[in-house]
């Protein structure tokens, strides 16, 4: 079984989720739970750091789609950062850069939230 892990840290009023391992149809619920609990707490400024992500499937991409509308309606956003080229390629093929802020670096995303 391929593993997946979500860790959370706070940076001011922005929450950074570090995701690690394989994000597919089996592990997607873990990220869903993580995002859902942030929304339940009223936390809508979210950065997802892809630095340690090895693989993402379409179901993994779907997780972000599931929450983005609600988050943006609450003046928040999900910004995606630190993708390796292979992961970025998956996002790019589907046209995700049109829909999401995909950034080089976590700090950059936090700064953008705060500006």
């Amino acid at each position: 079984m391929e593993s997946f892990e979500v860790t959370k840290k706070h940076d001011g009023n922005v929450v950074v989720l570090n995701i690690k391992g394989y994000l597919d149809a089996h592990t997607a619920p873990m990220l869903e739970n993580g995002l859902q609990s942030l929304i339940d707490q009223g936390q809508f400024r979210i950065v997802v750091n892809f630095k340690d992500l090895i693989y993402i499937s379409s179901a993994g991409l779907g997780v972000f789609m599931g929450f983005i509308e609600n988050i943006r309606n609450n003046q928040g956003d999900i910004k995606l950062t630190n993708m390796n080229p292979k992961i970025f390629r998956v996002f790019d093929l589907l046209g995700f850069p049109m829909l999401y802020d995909i950034m080089e670096d976590e700090q950059q995303a936090i700064t953008k939230f705060n500006s």
Binding site: M65, L93, L94, G95, F96, M98, L99
Partner: peptide, 19 residues
């Protein structure tokens, strides 16, 4: 060959059409 285009079901329409 990879012409631009979004996957279906992601965007309500405008951005999809534009892309």
């Amino acid at each position: 060959i990879e012409p631009p285009g979004l996957a279906l079901g992601l965007d309500p329409g405008k951005r999809f059409e534009k892309t």
